[in-house]
């Protein structure tokens, strides 16, 4: 767009393929149908037709983390429509990151939250999956919330981290610091 002399503001972000600001629809001359992509990660070609797609307009639920270990009902409480998925596959085909979105929605429906979380590691939150869903599922939001549930409720604790926090809190390093800061100043 810049090369064509057009300034851009909306639709530009990291320019590195991770912020999700620039989803486009693009059809190359030899293709039947347009495909979605991230503009900053797409090479233009002579004769290509392209349009910038609007940003994510799906509703964000106020979804805090629960106090107790979560299950799929924790998710349905905020995103009940997830259960309505009719497995049409539109979300998967539109994802510019190539995530199998539909599979992960099905996994979330069946309580396989860890699997859903894993699939969404590449998600840039562009929201195209929600925009094309006929039954108004918001897969990217489901994915992120699921990741947060899994992240905050890990089965095995990070014991080394806990121990280090205790050490610091109990003044374990106090003398070493005193000596070091003294030395560092002189």
């Amino acid at each position: 767009m810049w090369h064509l002399g057009r300034p851009m503001l909306h639709g530009v972000g990291c320019l590195g393929g991770v912020c999700g600001a620039c989803p486009i629809s693009i059809r190359l001359p030899n293709q039947m149908a347009p495909k979605t992509a991230l503009a900053c990660q797409t090479l233009v070609a002579e004769g290509a037709e392209m349009a910038f797609l609007p940003g994510d307009a799906s509703k964000k639920e106020i979804a805090p983390l629960p106090a107790e270990t979560p299950n799929q009902n924790t998710l349905f409480q905020y995103y009940p429509e997830t259960r309505r998925c009719v497995a049409c596959g539109a979300c998967t085909s539109i994802c510019p990151q190539g995530i199998d979105v539909m599979a992960s929605v099905r996994e979330a429906m069946n309580g396989k939250l860890a699997e859903t979380a894993d699939r969404f590691v590449d998600c840039v939150m562009c929201g195209l999956c929600a925009a094309v869903c006929d039954v108004k599922v918001r897969p990217h939001r489901v994915g992120l919330y699921t990741r947060r549930l899994i992240g905050a409720f890990q089965e095995n604790e990070a014991t080394q981290l806990k121990k280090r926090i205790e050490e610091i809190g109990s003044g374990h390093y106090k003398e070493q610091w005193a000596a070091l800061m003294e030395e560092a100043v002189h």
Binding site: L149, G151, A152, Q154, E155, N156, Q160, L161, K162
Partner: peptide, 18 residues
């Protein structure tokens, strides 16, 4: 720890340590 409590998924070893 604050980030983990917010739900950030850092890579883990099998024993749960970071």
């Amino acid at each position: 720890q604050w980030l983990i409590d917010l739900g950030v998924m850092f890579d883990r070893e099998d024993d749960g340590n970071l």
